[in-house]
Design a protein around this nucleic acid. Sequence first.
DNA 1: ATGTCGATTTAC
DNA 2: TAAATCGACATC
Length: 179
Amino acid sequence: MSLYQRQAKDAARRLIGAIIVRKFGTRILRGRIVETEAYLGPIDLASHASKGRTKRTEVMFASPGHAYVYLIYGMYDMFNIVVGAVGDAHAVLIRAAEPLDGWTENLSGPGKLARAFRVTRADNATNLCTSDSLYLVKGPRKRPRVLTTPRIGIDYALHWKDELLRFVDADSKAVSKIR
DNA sequence: ATGTCGATTTAC
DNA sequence: TAAATCGACATC
């Protein structure tokens, strides 16, 4: 079973430790994921999918393994991965990573991470299972110790703001700071 | 056609 | 504490 064919909660937890691979031109960028958030589809008031099926959310209702990239605050792209079964509209936001291969870059925060990996709306709907320039690979066998917390920046989502749907690598210093 | 507001970051 | 900056969505 693919990492992407799981409910967002499960996928988000398992994505901690996975490695993002990004290629453009002759460069290869890699980073180890240390922070994610799960968005549970139409019922989740913090998810864009709760607005229903629109032009923007269309890709979330499609098959898992695709990238959902959107613009926030007029200036930052957010990199998400569609997970679950077709129609679930579950997604996982990639919030922070540790740069690998001697790459020195601050990847702590979803806006900074997407910018550093050059992930933009042009990458929306990219199939991460078939793309050769943006995809994930398994991390080290040793699975990280994962902690859960409420999600960041969704105070408008009523009781959903308290759900423990943010996952962080307990032993990483690259986890984003809250506010 | 227009107003509100955001899954953030950075500067003051 | 607040500005930057713009598109999605709701409403008129």
